[in-house]
Simulated scan of single mutants.
Amino acid sequence: MAEPLHEQLRRALEGRIHAGDLAPGARLPTEKELCEQYGVSRPTAQRALNDLAKAGLAVRHRRHGSFVADSVRRFNLLNFVVPETAGKGVPGRHEVVSARVVRAADAVHPLPGAEPDAAVIELVRRKLDLLERVQSVEKHVVQFAAAPDLLDQELEELVTLGHLRARGVEVDTVRLYLDPVVLDERDARLLDSTPGTPTLLRRRELRVPDGTVIEVVKTLVRPGTAEFFVELPGSAV
């Protein structure tokens, strides 16, 4: 299947950014200019620029235009709890470190409420950017009964929240925690960082209507590579 035009355009702009053709702070082409340069429609140009902004590569200002973000990526935390946006994330690819079925007691981290002998799926991945630099390490622990076929999926592309909902699992609440931590030797090695460095741990819990936690994913961010924020429309505050 051919890649949608807005994704082709987004990738073309990403390539110019990472090649240094568009430096941090540089003004990106306007929607009109992109239409003329690439022969695309206005909605296609708009979506490509919006996707760059969601990925932390651009900053858009009404009436002033779009600009290349600096080297520290910025992410709206709300995107991590919405399936429609969770799959976009940072441009780049996942690298699977390990994937297995284990006892809950032996998993990389606890699944609240799970019996020690209950079967869980443990998936550890690294997220790499377009220049193959490590951005984060994700550690998923998923209730095996909720997604017994999870390890049969394309794990490099898998979005667990979307997969569970596609299977008909009724996710009632998504809870997000942020914790400051210090890297141990193993995590520092996975992140190409230094042991003892402070960083941010993002922990997400998925719960079904009866309160059971069916997944916990802990994401360690490589120090100095990202800032996180929550942005709400004015009508919501």
Rank of each mutant, 00 (worst) to 15 (best):
Val108Met: 03
Glu84Phe: 07
Leu52Ile: 04
Leu78Val: 08
Arg10Ser: 13
Leu130Cys: 10
Leu201Pro: 02
Leu155Met: 12
Met1Phe: 01
Pro198Cys: 06
Gly234Val: 15
Ala166Tyr: 00
Leu155Val: 15
Leu34Lys: 07
Leu123Cys: 14
Leu57Tyr: 12
Ser136Pro: 04
Tyr177Met: 02
Val237Lys: 05
Leu111Pro: 11
Pro198Val: 06
Phe67Leu: 14
Glu115Leu: 13
Glu156Gln: 14
Leu57Thr: 07
His18Phe: 13
Thr212Gln: 08
Arg10Pro: 12
Lys139Asn: 11
Arg167Ile: 06
Val137Leu: 04
Val230Leu: 10
Glu33Ile: 06
Ala114Lys: 09
Pro112Gly: 10
Leu130Trp: 02
Leu131Glu: 11
Leu232Gln: 10
His109Val: 08
Pro116Ile: 05
Ala26Asn: 10
Val208Ile: 15
Pro180Ser: 01
Glu3Asp: 04
Leu201Cys: 08
Leu123Lys: 08
Val137Gly: 01
Asp117Leu: 00
Ala236Ser: 12
Asp187Trp: 05
Glu31Val: 14
Ala99Pro: 01
Val171Tyr: 01
Lys54Ala: 14
Val68His: 02
Glu14Ala: 03
Ala55Thr: 09
Arg73Gln: 13
His140Tyr: 14
Phe75Glu: 10
Gly89Gln: 02
Glu33Gly: 00
Phe228Glu: 01
Val159Phe: 01
Phe229Thr: 12
Ser136Thr: 11
Asp70Leu: 02
Leu5Asp: 11
Glu157Gln: 12
Ser66Val: 05
Pro148His: 01
Arg125Thr: 14
Gly234Lys: 10
Thr194Ser: 06
Leu111Met: 12
Glu227Pro: 00
Thr44Val: 15
Val221Phe: 06
Ala53Gly: 05
Ala114Trp: 01
Arg203Lys: 06
Val90Asp: 06
Gly20Ala: 06
Val134Arg: 14
Leu13Pro: 09
His163Leu: 07
Val68Ser: 12
Asn79Phe: 04
Pro83Gly: 04
His163Arg: 05
Asp152Ser: 08
Val102Arg: 08
Leu28Asn: 15
Arg47Pro: 02
Ala107Trp: 02
Pro195Met: 09
Leu28Glu: 08
Ile121Ala: 12
Val171Phe: 00
Gly56Trp: 04
Arg165Val: 07
Ser235Val: 11
Val81Lys: 01
Lys139Gly: 07
Glu84Thr: 09
Lys139Ala: 15
Gln46Tyr: 14
Leu52Gln: 11
Gln8Phe: 08
Val72Ser: 09
Gln153Lys: 11
Asp51Val: 04
Ala147Asn: 15
Glu154Leu: 00
Gly211Asn: 02
Ala99Ile: 00
His18Asn: 03
Leu200Arg: 08
Leu161Ser: 13
Thr30Trp: 08
Ala236Gly: 02
Ala48Ile: 05
Lys54His: 13
Leu49Cys: 04
Ala226Phe: 03
Ala147Gly: 13
Ser71Gly: 06
Pro195Ala: 12
Phe228Pro: 11
Val237His: 14
Leu190Trp: 05
Phe67Trp: 00
Arg60Ser: 15
Leu34Val: 10
Leu200Trp: 00
Leu13Cys: 03
